[in-house]
């Protein structure tokens, strides 16, 4: 159960993050999760939204480079050691996490986190095998 993440290339320039958010707002697209990775010269904005295909289209029209990447939304027990348990499962099964970040809202009592794996299908299988809950595209949309 993969979900779609949109990644956007941003130059380190004043107001670019605003520009992205303005495009999304104007198109009535809601951001569910957000993360920025930055270097000296540029940044990569990663977002999960309620309407990913529309978001990519709108951003493309506004001259942004926006690609879709498959990620996995994992429900992480919201207590000390909750994230560690999941990471242990992944480490034991030799699954590499490229990066991860949290959702703004929760679907259940558990914390929702975005995981980017090099192999999302294999990761999903392993998580399911260990009874770790994964949120579906539909659930994300209904947050």
């Amino acid at each position: 159960m993969k979900i779609k993440q949109i990644s956007i290339f941003l130059q380190n320039k004043k107001g670019r993050l605003y520009d992205v958010c303005a495009v999304l707002g104007k198109n009535n697209i809601n951001i569910r999760a957000l993360n920025v990775a930055e270097t000296e010269a540029f940044g990569v904005l990663r977002i999960v939204v309620n309407k990913p295909d529309e978001a990519v289209k709108a951003l493309g029209e506004a001259n942004f480079v926006a690609n879709i990447t498959d990620v996995v939304a994992v429900e992480v027990p919201d207590r000390p050691g909750g994230l560690a348990e999941i990471l242990k499962v992944l480490a034991d099964e030799d699954v590499n996490v490229e990066y991860m970040y949290g959702f703004v809202e929760k679907a259940t009592d558990e914390a929702l986190m975005v995981f980017r794996f090099d192999n999302p299908d294999k990761a999903t299988e392993i998580l399911k095998k260990h009874n770790i809950k994964i949120a579906s595209e539909k659930e994300i949309k209904e947050l």
């Binding site: 990644s7 290339f9 270097t39 540029f42 990569v44 480079v65 690609n67 990447t69 980017r116």
Partner: peptide
Amino acid sequence: EVNSKMFSDEVKQLE
């Protein structure tokens, strides 16, 4: 200029 073919969500790929 970055285009969608060369763009990646991973900073290390871009670097």
